[in-house]
Each structure stands twice: as C-alpha cells, then as structure tokens.
Design a protein around this nucleic acid. Structure first.
Length: 832
RNA sequence: GCGGGAGUGGUGGAAUCGGCAGACACCCAGGACUUAAAAUCCUGUGUCAUACCAAUGGCGUGCGGGUUCAAGUCCCGCCUCCCGCACCA
C-alpha cells in the first residue's frame, strides 16, 4: 500500500509524510496521526454540562479489558456510536460519549494465580492497550470521564449502592444450594454455567449449600416486566427478558394431609383440571417429605433424596428424558372431591419454583403424563377434546371440561372452555378457603457473592453472627494488598487468608468483628457505570442530581446481545432501587438499545484463536488506515446482523476513500484544479441534496451501510466531472466526517477552511432541490414491465396515457385495455 | 418442545408505505495506460433460449398455495438455518 520511499522522519522524530509525492493513494498514517494529535490538543469531544443545549447520551457497553486487545467485533459497535456522536455534535447536540473499563473479573485473577502477577498490573496494561487501539480508530470519546470499576473512587460508590440495598432489605444472607466448582474453588451463578460445566474453563459443577449474599431482585419482578413497555429495545431482547422474568398467573391450592395434621400447598396454572389430579409430587428437598413419609417407605425416600441432592446440573440434564421418583406412602385429600391422592417425591419438581409441590394431572400436563406412564399411575381425562391415552391434552382455548362437579354440587365446571373454567374454579377455592389466585415468577433472587479476590469487597463486618453495615463515611473499603491469590480452599475467598485485614471492630458497639470475605460479582460494577460517567469526579455524591436530570436517560446504548438478559436486567433492577431512593430521576436507564451483530471470520466461522481466523484491528489499521476500517465495519451489512469479515471488502473501501481524495487533490498533492467556484447544475444539486437526505435519514436509523453506498454514488458521479463545484464538495466532506473523520478534516482544511470540520453544522437538505423536473415512468402490461417513458414532471395522466400506449402498442395488439392503473410519478399499468 | 429472528446473483448486501428485483461493493472477464507489472480509469457481469452483433423473449427473491391490475414485501401451509430458554407446574 504505502511505499517506504515517501515516508520520512521529521526533526521531532514523528512520522511525517511528503504528500506531494503520493500520487495514487493518500498517506493515511500521517493524516491520522495529525488529526489524532489535533483532537488530543484541542479536546473537541469534551461534554459540557450546559443545560441550554439539547443533550444526547450515546453509550457503548464498556469492555472487559482482556489480554488479547480490541477485537473487530468491539469496533463495530464503537464505530456505530462514534458516527452517531459526531453526527449529533454537528447537529448542535451536547453529546456525552464516554468510555471506561469493566475491569474486575476472573481472567486477571486466574492469571495472577498462575504467574503471581497482581491483577492490578495486568489490568492496567490491558487498559493501556485498549485505550491506544481506540484512539487509533479515531473514536471520539470524552476521555476526561474515563473510569474503571476497579478504581477506589468508583467502587466506593458500588459499595455505597450495596449499603442502600442492605438498608432497604434487598440484600440478605441465606444458606442456599449453590453451584460449587471444585476446580475454580468458587461458586458460580446459574448464568456462568454452560451445559453443566463452568463457562470459564469448562470444569464440573456440583450443588452445595453455602452462606451467600443474595439480592432480592424478585421484589422488582413486576416492575421490571411492566416497564419494558417504556423502552425502545429489540423485540428479541424484550422477549428474552419477559421469559426470564417468567410471570405466570394461577392459583395456590391447599390439599389436606390424609393421615397427619396440616396441609400441602401447591401452585397450579390449571385449577380447571383439579378434578383430574391423580397424585401429588413434592420436590425432594420439600420440608413435608419428613412428615408424609411412612416408616415402610422411609429407606427408599431418603436414598432418593440424598441421590438428588448430590446430582450436578449436568447429571440432571442427562437424566432429563427419563423421569424418576419414589412413593412416600403418604396421601393428601383433593379439596374438590375429597379423593385420597398418593404423594410422591421426584426431582422433576423444583423446590425453588412455586411452593415446591404440585398436583399431578397426567391427562393435561406433558410432564405429569410422562411420569404417570413410567410408574403406571392413573390418567383421568377432565378436558374433552384430545386423546389422553396417546399424549397429554394441554390446550386452554379448545375442548370442554367434563367430570368436574363437586360431590355436593356447589361447583361445576362441566361444559366450560378451560379458559373460562380457570377463573370460576379459582373463585370457588377462595370462597371455601382452600386456595387463592397467585402470580409466580421464574425469576430468582440474585446470588451476589463470589469467593474471589479481584472484586469489590462488601462493606460489611460480622459481629456475633450478624452482618453489620459499615457507615458511609468509612467507604471505600479498599481491596487489601496481597501476594497470594489462591483460593483459601475452605470455600472462602483469598481474602480469608489475610488475618490482619479480617480483624475489624463493630462500627456500632466497638466489639471485635470479622470482615465479610466474599467479593461482589463482575456484574456489580457494570450495573451503574452509565451514571458515574455523568459526574465521574464527584467526591461527595455518586452523581450530582442536577447533572443526572440533564443527561439521563441514555439515548442510545449499543452492545452485544450476550447481555440481553443479565447485565441489562441487573442494571434495570439497581436503577429502579436508586429511583426509589431518589438518586435517579428516570424509571428506566436505557431508552434505545441496539445489539451489534457478531463479526465472523473470513471463512464464515466464529472468530477464534484455534481456527486461526481472528482479524486484528491493529493489522487492519496499519494496512488500510482507521478511516477505511471504520467505513468497512459499517459497510459490511446491517449493524444488527451477523456477517463475515472480508479483507477484500476493506480494499474496496480503500479505493472509495482514494477516489474521494482524488476528487479534490491532484497528483501533485495540491488542491486539484478541477475544484472550482462554478455554480452546480440543477441535476448536480439534486444529487447532492438527495445524498444529504439519504445520509441524514440513514444515520438516524442506524443504516450506515446504505448511507455509505449513497456517498459512493455521489463520488462516482463527481469523478466523471471535469469541473467539480465547491458548493457540492464541501457539504459532502461534512457528510463523510462522522464515518471517516481523519480524511474529512484533512480535506476540509485543504479546501481552505480553518479546523475543524467536526465543528461545522450538519448540511441541510432543501426538499425543493431534490425534486426532479423529469419523470421516468415504467410501463407495464398485465403487471409486466414492457417499456419506459420519460416525460416532464407534472405531465398529467391524460397526456401520459396515449404516449404510453404508443410505446407498448405491440403488446396491446390493437385491443383496448380493460383497465389502466396509473400511480402518479410511479408507474402505469395496462390490463388486457 | 417453547419463544424470537432470518432465507434475494459466484460473494457481502439493496429495494424504508404492495409499484422498474439485484442499488453499492467484492470476485471474475475484457479493454485503455505501461517495455512490463502494480496502481488507476473504462466496459461487461442473475439465469436460460434465439443471435455475429444489436436486440428480443422465457424464468427468477427457500418450497407449495392464495389475495391483487401489480407480491421479495400481505395471507395460509411447509422446509431450512441462527439466537435464546428449556422439567418453571
């Protein structure tokens, strides 16, 4: 690409370039360092807290600074927000476009365990690499607002938010079965386990009860679901969050125990099938198992229960197809018909959902049906319309209820549609005090503790077995220094090895206390970073309320769809807690959300080191320049879709940028003589104004690929001209600026303007100039294209029709058309 | 199994409201410039048929139906692929 002969080192040692000798291709390296240095000095991307201007908060999901550096996939999303940010600045908005680091996390800690290098050192190095790469790509961040979740000044407020959660009873300690990974010596959240193995490393995971911090996200289930209507998010993400929250309406029903005092409470969404219940099932861990099990069944029941407790998630999935369970010997009484129903235990019933117990209706539930077939339990049809000997019939909008009348006749569902029978049955249960309408959620409370070193310490000490919060003034509680990053082995974090740090005093009574040794999960820091960007240096408050009200909500948030549920749900939860605490002013943090698609390797496979198809942005920028890489990232296809990288495609973009350069710059490196002050023709004006309109609309809709394509059309047309009016070129340079900022700045300067082009107002298009004075009307016969007609704009139908008829006379064969359809300016169609 | 999304030339993709399918690129082929090459510029490029060319026509947006003067776009029924969830009662 670049011939070494044209490069020279200037006196100050910086790479400089003699552009006059660059005849074919401009020197992108020299030009990019020039403008990056300009931005570094003049800092035009600083966001001011100026309430007189309209604001635009444009946010990227901040990265975990991994050792492998920035990825072309990262760059896709970052380029998109950068284009929008630069465009919005030119449109007069005060734009907040910040970047930071989600820098706590397992990889740096595992590296420390292996090599003894402190995670803080690795992290700092990786951040430096990421930042250098981002600057090289010409991303217009306001670096004065940079933050890292690992900074004490930052995690001080993460700890502060935890205290708010604790004060509100939303953070509590529970002895819960957790996913314990022996190889990593830590517990994992459900979402960190893939196919029964740890997501990191692929190790086995078993279930083990442990004392854990848990956040009560379930208290916000309803609002998290409802407020999804307030945001402009992709349908798939909205659906995923809805499914994750998993709201379902049903009833809790009490079944009296047959041979003991007390009752068994179940949750069902199908109270209409109550008469079809033929047995009951408890989760193996259910407390009533002890009560209902008869002596003769005790041995088997205990054996089953112990086996279920030992099962790992992987084993449970392997066994998914075959259901298992044992009979307890106990019975419960069906409240609607007083039948004795045998009580089983089976691990297809989960202790963590509903009441941990179900009534089994094999005729109308697929799981119960499979279990009943396996253990030869009776199947009783109460909804007519299916073939319950072949499969469970589960529809609620089809079929009729049968065999469903109470013995005393006080309630009958017979003849109803299942959908109508559900409320009737629920009401009856409420009347007789045997049950009530209930809403259940799949969403579980959030397991918030990790047995790791590289995370935020909890601002908590333990006194006499009770957790005590540290007072706000004692924050931050710094992560203590150590050289030993190995897990303590007891299941506690490496912090448990630090005797001196562990000893504390109770802030309330002065009694000796022991510090909490867990640290927070990586999600904690990323839950609220968008708020700190608004006021990153505030030492008094997490965020100034005046600034918060000005900048929030985030107007555009771009990041990978892998965060569709967890990060985005956890953030929304914290945001709502902060909203209730009066810290933030909006119910939702992120107004519009877009996920960039995955960039595949050149071979159409997922990029991975093992496949050897990873594209390194540094190499690409070396070879083609930042502007070409940015433009190609956007030209590949729609932002949201998955698409393969093509180095050939980058070459194509390079050709386009070279053509733009040559439009204005001659072979001698000076402004081309073809650039003139001539007045553009109406046709040329039309092309320019159409291009302005297209590029503007496309940026607003994030259709960068078609915006670029229109700029190519414009450039191709301009190339043909021997006289290129400035009136056309100058607005075009501004249109190109958000995409290729280095080149545009340079051209703007060479056109004789003072920097910077990025501070110019966005070109406006004149609708009057877009309208053409000629129309091209396609002529169809029976819907098939048979000819075209060019006429003056404004030609009436009466004038046009005979001309069109003449044009396609051979297709009419002298016959009169049955019907003529004319759509103004669009087409004319003869039906024969 | 359930939920969401997508299938258009050799390739990436365009067609935004039912109105000229294939914009813009990549690849490939031919030409100009050159001692030559690279670069650049120009031309061609869905497919089949007739044809020296010019041209003309048939077919064509995963498959099968339908609505309409007109369907990539709307409706019904399938197929395939991708993403997420998955014993949630």
């Amino acid at each position: 690409m670049l011939e070494s002969s044209v490069l020279s080192l200037s006196a100050n040692g910086r790479l400089a370039c003699d552009v006059s000798r660059m005849s074919k291709s401009y020197d992108h390296q020299a030009l990019e360092s020039k403008w990056q240095a300009y931005w570094e000095t003049h800092r035009p991307f600083r966001a001011s807290d100026d309430p007189s201007k309209p604001k635009f908060y444009c946010l990227d999901m901040f990265p975990y600074p991994s050792g492998s550096g920035l990825h072309v996939g990262h760059l896709e999303g970052y380029t998109a927000t950068d284009i929008v940010s630069r465009y919005k600045r030119m449109c007069g908005f005060n734009v907040l476009h910040p970047m930071g680091w989600d820098a706590f996390g397992l990889p740096a800690e595992q590296y420390a365990v292996k090599t003894g290098v402190h995670p803080a050192i690795t992290t700092a190095q990786n951040i430096a690499t990421f930042k250098r790469q981002m600057k090289r790509a010409g991303l217009s961040y306001d670096w004065e607002r940079e933050l890292s979740t690992t900074d004490q000044d930052y995690y001080r407020w993460t700890q502060w938010i935890f205290l708010k959660l604790f004060e509100r009873g939303l953070a509590y300690v529970a002895e819960v079965p957790v996913n314990w990974c022996p190889a990593l010596s830590t517990v994992l959240a459900n979402e960190e386990i893939v196919d029964g193995k740890s997501e990191v490393g692929g190790f086995d995971v078993i279930r083990k009860p442990m004392r854990q911090w848990v956040l009560k996200i379930t208290a916000y289930a309803e609002r998290l679901l409802e407020d999804l209507s307030l945001v402009e998010w992709p349908t798939s993400t909205l659906e995923m969050q809805k499914n994750w929250i998993g709201r379902s309406i049903g009833a809790e029903v009490d079944f009296a125990l047959a041979d003991a005092p007390g009752h068994l409470r179940v949750f069902t969404t199908r109270p209409d099938t109550l008469f079809g219940a033929t047995y009951m099932v408890l989760a193996p861990e259910h407390p009533l198992v002890e009560v209902v099990t008869t002596p003769s069944h005790r041995a088997q029941v205990m054996e089953y229960r112990d086996a279920a407790a030992r099962k790992s998630d992987l084993q449970r999935q392997e066994l998914e197809k075959v259901k298992s369970g044992v009979f307890t010997g106990g019975y419960a009484i069906n409240p609607v018909n007083h039948e004795r129903l045998p009580i089983w235990i089976a691990d297809y019933v989960l202790m963590s959902y509903g009441t941990g117990a179900i009534m089994a209706v094999p005729a109308h539930d697929a799981r119960d049906w499979a279990f009943a077939m396996q253990y030869r339990l009776p199947i009783r049809e109460v909804i007519h319309g299916g073939q319950v000997d072949k499969a469970a019939f589960v529809d609620t909008d089809r079929g009729r209820v049968i065999n469903s009348t109470t013995p005393d006749g006080s309630c009958s569902l017979d003849g109803l549609l299942p959908g109508d029978a559900i409320p009737k049955m629920t009401t009856w249960l409420e009347t007789v005090g045997k049950g009530k309408k209930t809403i259940n959620y799949k969403l579980r409370d959030w397991l918030f503790a990790r047995q790791r070193y590289w995370g935020e310490p909890f601002p908590i000490v333990w006194v006499d077995g009770e957790p005590r919060p540290l007072p706000e003034e004692q924050l931050p509680l710094p992560l203590p220094e150590t050289k030993n990053f190995k897990p303590s082995g007891s299941g506690e974090s490496p912090l448990a090895n630090l005797e001196e740090w562990l000893n504390a005093t109770d802030p309330a009574t002065g009694k000796p206390a022991r510090r909490e040794t867990n640290t927070m999960p990586q999600w904690a820091g990323s839950c609220w970073y968008y708020l700190r960007f608004i006021d990153p240096k505030n030492s008094r408050l997490m965020v100034d309320p005046v600034k918060e009200r000005y900048w929030m909500p985030v107007d555009l948030y771009i990041g990978g769809s892998e965060h569709a549920v967890l990060h985005l749900l956890y953030s929304r939860f914290w945001h709502k807690v902060l909203f209730d605490a009066g810290v933030v002013s909006t119910p939702e943090p992120f107004k519009k959300l877009v996920h960039q698609g995955i960039v595949l390797g050149e071979d159409n496979q997922k990029m991975s080191k093992s496949r050897g198809n990873v594209v390194n942005p540094d190499d690409m920028i070396d070879q083609f320049g930042a502007d070409a890489v940015r433009l190609y990232e956007m030209f590949m296809g729609p932002l949201e879709s998955m698409k393969p990288w093509s180095t050939r495609g980058v070459e194509g973009i390079t050709r386009f940028l070279d053509r733009v350069w040559r439009l204005m710059i001659g072979e001698d490196g000076a402004l081309s003589a073809a650039v003139t002050g001539a007045v553009p023709t109406p046709e040329q004006q039309r092309l320019l104004h159409y291009t302005i309109k297209k590029v503007t609309d496309d940026i607003d809709a994030l259709r960068f690929n078609t915006a670029i394509s229109q700029m190519m059309v414009f450039t191709n047309e301009m190339t043909k001209l021997e006289q290129r009016p400035r009136q056309l070129l100058e607005p075009f340079v501004l249109l190109l600026l958000p995409f290729a900022p280095h080149l545009s700045e340079e051209l703007w300067e060479r056109l004789g303007h003072a920097p910077s082009a990025g501070q110019q107002p966005w070109p406006e298009f004149d609708p009057a100039l877009v309208v053409s004075d000629r129309w091209t009307i396609p002529i169809q016969v029976n819907g098939k294209l048979r000819g075209k007609l060019e006429v003056d704009a404004g030609t009436s139908r009466d004038q046009l029709e005979p001309l069109a008829k003449q044009e396609i006379a051979e297709w009419l064969q002298g016959k009169e058309p049955k019907k003529v359809i004319y759509v103004e300016k669009k087409l004319i169609n003869f039906v024969v």
